[in-house]
Amino acid sequence: MRDAVGSVRSVLLLGGRSEIGLAVVERLVHEGARKVVLAARGGAEAPHSLAALEPEVHSLDFDAALHETHCGIVAAAAELVGDLDVVVDAFGVLGDQAAYEADPVSAARDSAVNYTGHVSVDLAVAARLREQGHGTLVVLSSVAGVRTRRFNYVYGSAKAGLDGFAQGLADALHGTGARVLVVRPGYVPTQMSRHVDPAPFPATPGQVAAAVARGLRTGAHTVWAPPVLWPLFTVLRALPRPLWRRLSR
């Protein structure tokens, strides 16, 4: 398989300061990737842990809200490193539900980042991978989008849209040599989630990265981190709504 982990030479990270995204990049560099592009608003520097591995690192200014620039960002990344073997879509905003209810404008603004920004840039990535005839788009979804919950339904609904979009995109790319890997982590303790109460079955960024690497190696279309979330949410999706409503997390 051309885009199995051992043959990955280049990685583009959309959301160049994402702790989970950087953990995925580091894992792929450990396993042989040598060219990295970090795309983030204002650009992004490689953290020490990544720089110490001595890959070739480039930085691009990427704004999820500027949809008209997204095709150019993907093209610029390809100009820097050649074919894009893996593109990791890891940007997003994890806001506060109560704050969103008090300020609908902020809810709409963040939802646009968490959904329509991905639609725009992922379609640009898909066109590039289709043209190459190989490559994997890794989309960081969330269990929050599997079934939205009352304590974070603004964020969860955007993730639900992204998850559905990514699955449809995967089907659209079938047979082209390009593919999509959807990643569904549970609670991951990071700087972005520091204001959120911990949830059962957490995963570290490193554990999510290991799941991604395993998914690339096996050709999976979806991975859960930790894996126990798959059978758990199979049951929870069928839970009667009055019981679902009572869940605190």
Score class of each variant (00 low, 15 high):
residue 1 M to C: 12
residue 5 V to C: 00
residue 9 R to N: 13
residue 16 G to R: 08
residue 17 R to F: 06
residue 18 S to T: 01
residue 20 I to E: 05
residue 22 L to T: 03
residue 22 L to V: 05
residue 30 H to F: 12
residue 30 H to E: 14
residue 32 G to F: 03
residue 32 G to T: 00
residue 33 A to E: 06
residue 33 A to K: 05
residue 34 R to I: 13
residue 35 K to P: 05
residue 35 K to R: 15
residue 45 E to D: 14
residue 49 S to R: 15
residue 52 A to Q: 14
residue 53 L to N: 12
residue 55 P to R: 11
residue 56 E to N: 11
residue 56 E to L: 15
residue 58 H to F: 15
residue 61 D to K: 05
residue 62 F to P: 04
residue 67 H to F: 14
residue 69 T to Q: 12
residue 75 A to F: 01
residue 80 L to T: 05
residue 81 V to F: 02
residue 84 L to N: 06
residue 86 V to Q: 07
residue 89 D to V: 14
residue 92 G to C: 10
residue 92 G to D: 11
residue 93 V to N: 04
residue 93 V to I: 13
residue 98 A to I: 14
residue 98 A to Y: 06
residue 108 A to Y: 13
residue 112 A to G: 09
residue 112 A to L: 14
residue 113 V to L: 09
residue 114 N to H: 00
residue 114 N to F: 05
residue 118 H to Y: 12
residue 121 V to C: 05
residue 125 V to T: 04
residue 126 A to E: 02
residue 130 R to H: 07
residue 131 E to S: 11
residue 132 Q to N: 02
residue 137 L to F: 11
residue 138 V to D: 03
residue 141 S to N: 12
residue 142 S to L: 09
residue 143 V to Y: 06
residue 144 A to S: 13
residue 144 A to Y: 04
residue 147 R to G: 01
residue 147 R to A: 00
residue 148 T to Q: 08
residue 148 T to G: 13
residue 149 R to E: 11
residue 150 R to E: 10
residue 151 F to Q: 14
residue 162 L to V: 12
residue 165 F to H: 09
residue 166 A to R: 05
residue 166 A to W: 07
residue 170 A to F: 04
residue 170 A to G: 15
residue 171 D to R: 14
residue 171 D to M: 12
residue 172 A to W: 07
residue 172 A to F: 08
residue 172 A to C: 07
residue 172 A to R: 13
residue 173 L to Y: 07
residue 173 L to R: 10
residue 176 T to L: 02
residue 178 A to N: 01
residue 178 A to S: 04
residue 186 G to Y: 03
residue 189 P to F: 03
residue 195 H to R: 15
residue 195 H to T: 07
residue 196 V to H: 12
residue 197 D to V: 13
residue 198 P to F: 06
residue 205 P to F: 09
residue 211 A to R: 07
residue 214 R to V: 08
residue 217 R to Q: 15
residue 220 A to N: 08
residue 226 P to N: 02
residue 227 P to K: 12
residue 228 V to Y: 00
residue 229 L to S: 00
residue 229 L to E: 06
residue 233 F to T: 03
residue 234 T to D: 10
residue 235 V to F: 04
residue 237 R to W: 08
residue 238 A to N: 10
residue 238 A to D: 03
residue 243 L to M: 14
residue 243 L to E: 10
residue 245 R to M: 09
residue 245 R to P: 06
residue 246 R to Y: 08
residue 248 S to I: 12
